[in-house]
Write a protein that binds this DNA or RNA. Structure first.
Lengths: 138, 138
DNA sequence: CTGCCTGCAAATAATTTGCAAAGTA
DNA sequence: TACTTTGCAAATTATTTGCAGGCAG
């Protein structure tokens, strides 16, 4: 938790009860949640919190690398704790329970070289979405 | 094109100018398009077409397997032709001119094995979005 | 004190739906 | 003709924004 608060400071974001509560919900809950899920859990502790604030905080925490944003099957926002903030990685999402595993293995370089050679292009970024069934849902 | 029309018939969907035009746009254009892109292209030929109709047709064509639906980074719907002998491939998109190149090279197997081993999971699908600058925009 | 934070209300925008008129088989 | 398709307008709904008052540093 300390490192999250330090991360906030490093990024000129003030440490407020709302922000702490959002982080805490992810730390103690662990899973993948949408803004409304988070809002529901927050309401119990901070009854005056508003949904727009939740959206804003989630987006900020994503920007500074505390959360990972993803898009669920129903096209809505989902967030989960990012455990590998500084390492290039991708995410494996379970199709049944929506759990996310972070995958630090990436052999994209080969594809990148292939593209740059074949199309004489410059590859600047890549995103990989991997789906399947986790060990429990399998 | 004939097989697409047969597919419509097989699924009790009538062959209408709108549906033919939508399929034709994907066949002659090849790439990944959102409802509004398709609408724009249709407007030129069928000036009275409405956006809801485009949404409906795209959804129907997805249901019968002519199109593949996906969700783009900006959380909007995207469709592309489902090439029947399903040649696995990805897309490289130019950040400047939006041109799309199809990339048939994929070394994802390694990643897949890594995930299945490490998390004891079953990998079922993956999507890769590659961005950069094409030869002309570079 | 000095901005950043937040709640509220309202705006935005993609996607869907209801329904009457038009088209297909 | 019988039933499907479509255009239009309106509804829906997740997400975003403006702004006045509140709070962290």
């Amino acid at each position: 938790m300390e490192s999250y608060l330090q991360n906030l400071k490093d990024n000129c974001l003030k440490i407020t009860p709302r922000r702490k509560a959002v982080i805490d919900i992810f730390v103690s809950n662990g899973s993948r949640m949408g803004p409304y899920d988070v809002y529901g859990k927050l309401k119990k502790r901070l009854s005056t919190i508003g949904l727009p604030t939740v959206y804003r905080i989630l987006s900020e925490l994503k920007d500074i690398g505390i959360l990972v944003q993803s898009i669920s099957e129903d096209r809505q926002l989902r967030y989960s704790l990012c455990t590998l903030p500084d390492v290039h990685h991708h995410h494996f999402t379970c199709r049944k329970c929506s759990k996310i595993e972070e995958v630090e293995f990436c052999n994209f370089k080969g594809v990148s070289r292939f593209i740059e050679k074949k199309f004489n292009a410059k590859v600047e970024a890549h995103q990989v979405q991997i789906e399947g069934l986790c060990s429990e849902c399998k």
